[in-house]
Amino acid sequence: MDSESQAQVVYQRLLANVERVIRGQDRAVRLLIAAFAAGGHVLLEDVPGTGKTTLAKALARSIHAEFQRIQFTPDLLPSDILGVSIFDQGSQKFCFHPGPVFTEVLLADEINRASPRTQSALLEAMGERQVSVDGARHGLKPLFFVIATQNPLEFQGTFPLPESQMDRFALRFSLGYVSPGEEVEILSDQAHGHPLERIVPCVSEGEVATLRTELESVRVSEELKRYVVDIVGATRSAEGVRVGASPRASLTVVRVAQALALFDGLDFVTPDHIQEIAEPAIAHRILVEDQAGFSGLGGEQVVKEILETLPVPA
């Protein structure tokens, strides 16, 4: 594209807005916005204090969108998320009171603290984009986007997400620690109140819709599609892997890569976009064998090795 597309402008605005709050997390911000544009949900995994919640809030507040946050706790019930039907004595009918899931941007904080039953309730809503309560179906908002966070280190009182449910997240990535210089900047920023409070929405709902429409027009060559399929296919036969990634992984890689291409001002996907997105989009869907897991093998390592060995179209 010769001139900057509207989508690219929207991206740049969002990026700038979020980066006012989050320092030194360029990659994470880019991935988060890409997943948002591609309509996929995100799982942020990192130790406490790295800015997971702040990042999620910054994105949510940068968009003119409804935002809800659920703090997951062991006693949280599915109805606390989905909503509940209550008998109305006046009308003599059951009235549905929608839960926090009926929003546009949902922050599911510390998702692994809730019981599997509650997790499943949210994850099914994410997969189906609708909620069934008392036999009635309630559709979720078109913009519906979940940012879930979890702390990978804590095991006490947590319920790890089942492997099948992990598949519902388009991307999983972590933030990591920032450089000392950036950390100093964070301290300076927060000297007079949290920058999150100063952030104002910069992108309208309509612009998000444009972003998603333009994303669909980004072209992907047959060769690159095959490359994606080969990467995902290789996870299934990789050593130490019990269950490889599903075709849903291929779909996600292509779709998020389209978003990245759009952000880079291109109207076609390049192998670099595929490689950029492969690990966050595929690694969490891989189930390694117990033995290999003990030896320290993880999904990330499997994808990394595949990317290194599989000849990339050039």
């Binding site: 060769e223 690159l224 996907v269 390049t270």
Partner: peptide, 12 residues
Amino acid sequence: LPTHYRWRFDPQ
């Protein structure tokens, strides 16, 4: 490089 990429990976 982007021109090469377009040649190679843009279906158009």
